[in-house]
């Protein structure tokens, strides 16, 4: 069953003012449970607005959103439970940290769920291990940590709610390559360990190609497509027309193909490309 479903989802900013802007335009979408999907689209294409509908932070101007078979906004009181079901990590989540200690900050979400102490403790330890926050950091103030550590603590704060769907908006932006690797690796691990649905908004096609199974493309407030990674990157011409790119390695192989070297299609990770080339060379 689809865990997230939308029908005719439309959101308009500043309705009735000169600044009126359609941010999401009649999106019909079904995301299956357990998917690990990337969301791409150039700046202002409506990605961030779209994901804020999945946990009921924004109310659709028209259209509906179903989470786990339940339609949002039918009953306003039921919105909070939805936020525990769909965890949303905003861009630069480290700016939301506020507690005295790392431990307490991660506990904020689970505490709001009304869980008992033991369960909260278990979840905190579990997620801290997953994001690589050692015990020595747990009693420190979150404001003493480094940028990358802060980011991981903030993500852990959402993961600790054990949401069925985890959505991350540019979780790796502004970090050095090592930090990026770390964050993306732990998200991948989270998906593998829990089998939960994960949506990853990113501008880096490389990060997307390396991690996700499916890609959702937004273009000018409209849903362009939601399909498997290979199929999406196959439409590189169209992607380029909307100001997006395909991974560098895909571009290299497209060039090779254009030069008449048969390399096979759907190359979008360096790992796969290396294997492909090795096989070719062996022949």
């Amino acid at each position: 069953m689809a865990i997230i479903k939308t029908e005719g989802l439309t959101y308009v900013y500043g309705e009735g003012t000169p600044f009126r802007k359609v941010a999401v335009d009649s999106v019909d979408l079904e995301i299956e449970s357990g998917d690990f999907a990337g969301i791409i689209g150039h700046t202002g294409s409506g990605k961030s607005t779209l994901i804020q509908h999945f946990n009921g932070l924004l109310k659709p101007t028209s259209g509906s959103v179903w989470i786990d078979g339940e339609r949002l906004w039918d009953d306003k009181a039921k919105l909070r439970p939805v936020r525990f079901k769909v965890g949303l990590v905003f861009q630069y989540p480290e700016y939301q940290l506020f507690e005295e200690t790392v431990y307490k900050d991660i506990a904020f979400g689970p505490k709001n769920m009304g869980l008992d102490e033991d369960e909260i403790d278990r979840r905190i330890k579990e997620t801290a291990r997953l994001v690589g926050i050692g015990d020595s950091l747990m009693s420190k103030s979150p404001f003493e940590l480094s940028g990358g550590q802060k980011r991981r603590v903030a993500i852990a704060g959402v993961m600790a709610m054990e949401p069925k769907v985890l959505i991350l908006d540019e979780p790796a932006s502004g970090l050095d390559p090592k930090g990026r690797e770390h964050i993306l690796g732990m998200i991948k691990e989270y998906h593998q360990e829990t089998g939960n649905t994960v949506l990853l908004v990113s501008h880096s096609m490389e990060d997307i190609a390396r991690n996700v199974q499916k890609i959702l493309v937004m273009n000018d407030a409209k849903l362009f497509c939601y399909d498997e990674t290979a199929k999406v990157f196959h439409r590189s011409e169209e992607l380029r027309a909307m100001g997006l790119a395909v991974p560098q390695i895909t571009r290299v192989f497209e060039r090779l193909r254009a030069m008449g070297i048969d390399t096979g299609e759907d190359v979008y990770t360096v790992k796969y490309a290396a294997r492909l080339l090795l096989e070719k060379l062996k022949k």
Partner: peptide
Amino acid sequence: KIMSAQKARGA
């Protein structure tokens, strides 16, 4: 932004 982020954590 902060309000949205904390609401997302169930505030």
